[in-house]
Amino acid sequence: MSSHSETGKFHYHEPGLQHQFEDMGQQEESVSIGMWMFLVQEIMFFGGLFTAYLVFRSKYPMAFAAGSNHLDAFWGGLNTLVLIVSSLTMALTVYYAQKSNRNMQVIMILLTMAFGATFLGVKTIEYRDKFNHGLVPVQGWNKRIKAETNAEHETKPCWEVDHNAPAIEHPNPRGEFQWTDCSLVKKAQDEGYLTNAEKIGYFSNGEIDANKFRDKVRIFYYLYFVMTGLHALHMIVGLALMTWLLIVAWRGSFSEDYYMPVEMSGLYWHFVDIVWIFLFPLLYLLGRHFMHGG
């Protein structure tokens, strides 16, 4: 709330009007345009990552599909729904602020925060799973699994993978990125839709090279972690914003006459939701239609 001095005693002043603005209309428009400029640069910021995704996926679609199929679409889908519900409660926060309903505002902010926290909790479950299975693309950042002294060496070619067999815990003494399944490369080779980049990028001397394929899948996981990590960072910032909003709303500061902070925080929250709306199909679902080469 503003506390400007009593200058023009003949002038009516809205209680929420900051002194540098002529009237509430001008104030609200300036505030929204400022916020939208911020969102536009955020779109460009995420846009750079989407461009990287586009370039690498157009070159190595099979590696991206293989990596994507290893993500759990259940958790991804659940998180999409959680974020959509949180967007609804955020929109209703703005609605109740416009109706000067303090109690419902506080309830809706608390619900939004609860759903935001649920999202981050699910993300933690997913990241932990990647850590346990050697899918973090940085050496040493994965769970270290001691090599067995008389471990049987895998002799089968890397594309003959039984996807119904229980997951094997591969020894990973140095915590490296691991990938052993080339079945999608074999499938694409047999059906003849490898890209030019793939024909070079997955093969050594005409044979499928598991190590070269692993490095391409690794690119997918780099992008997965950077994009979802940056998105999660935005969620954390959003939760901080909600905490501040909760305190101010608790004091009953927002009303029909002054609710722009709620509306602007809402814009940010919805923006983060929109980013996830694109991340979910692009990261979790892109290769699902030929899951496991079948």
Binding site: Y12, H13, M24, G25, E28
Partner: peptide
């Protein structure tokens, strides 16, 4: 400023 209500978005 009397007609301020119309200035709102």
């Amino acid at each position: 400023y009397e007609q301020h209500d119309h200035d709102h978005i």
